[in-house]
Amino acid sequence: MTAIIKHRLFWPASALVVLITVNMLANASFARITVRDGHLYGALIDILRQSAPLMLVALGMTLVIATRGIDLSVGAIMAVSGAVALTIIDGSEDPGGFGTIMIAILVALLVSLVLGAWNGFLVSVLGIQPIIATLVLMLAGRGTALLITSGEITTVVSAPFKQIASGYLVILPVAFFIWVAAVVVVGVVERRTALGMLTEAVGINPEASRLAGVRSRGIIWTAYIASGVLAGVAGIIYSSNTMAADANSAGYLIELYAILAVVLGGTSLMGGKFSIAGTVIGVLIVQTLESTILFLGVAPAKSPVFFALVVIFVVLVQSPRVHRWGRSVFGSSRTSSAPDEDAEKKEVAA
């Protein structure tokens, strides 16, 4: 039992479960899932579908935060990626053609990769503070997206492209499969190669890592490139959802929601140890909360405050300090805190 409570994902997962339960109590239809034309529909399915852009962005953000960095430019990269993809489709002879869409996606992702590499260059080679380095692109990126779309909201018609965000694969939404695939790929790359451990080492103690022979520059660079590419995928999903390249609203403030999701998932902003599973839960918390606001019919004017209140509550529930405080108020005496070095049985040299 204590092993479960001590698990780093216990509190985030509990928060998610509580959030879903509250919704179900408020309105039983929240949990209802119906089958139509062999596809699943329902509020929970919508959450899985709609969380795709945030999930992808938060995944990249997790890696960047693990290196002690932060990437504020992800929303702008989403806007650029969407603008590039839709502009290509818009300008093509055959907007519904498979080839066109593939080219649009590939070019958009390539541009995102270059933008991510630019961030990584500023941070790892030039040594600029991550928050400033990525702020450059956060501001300039949206400007670039506006230039690409000539300041207009380009709407396109391309049924196959629309499938990315709205379509179904077998019984579940395509967008859901995309983020699951991204989670699996990132998870496998981080844990099956040494990238995860080396990323944590660089995030915890960059100088010690360098002296141990870790190529920290490459590792930090990789994190920003991954963040850029994942934001690019998010941008494609977003633009496929709206079918309009809107440079101003695509990915607006998503960097902050992504940071929130990463922190809710238990990864420290101080860098180092990170949890992909935690981030997945964090994103689902944020997305469920968004749906809750719609579902409970919170008036638009009140929804930001409602959102903030719930976030504060969730953060408090997870705070170790609040846990300690709770224990001291509700009776149980000092629990065995982490034993310090003196507590260890020291074997005397024989």
Partner: peptide
């Protein structure tokens, strides 16, 4: 501490 161990690992 600063150039040796990676404390949290």
């Amino acid at each position: 501490r600063t150039e040796g161990i990676v404390g949290d690992l």
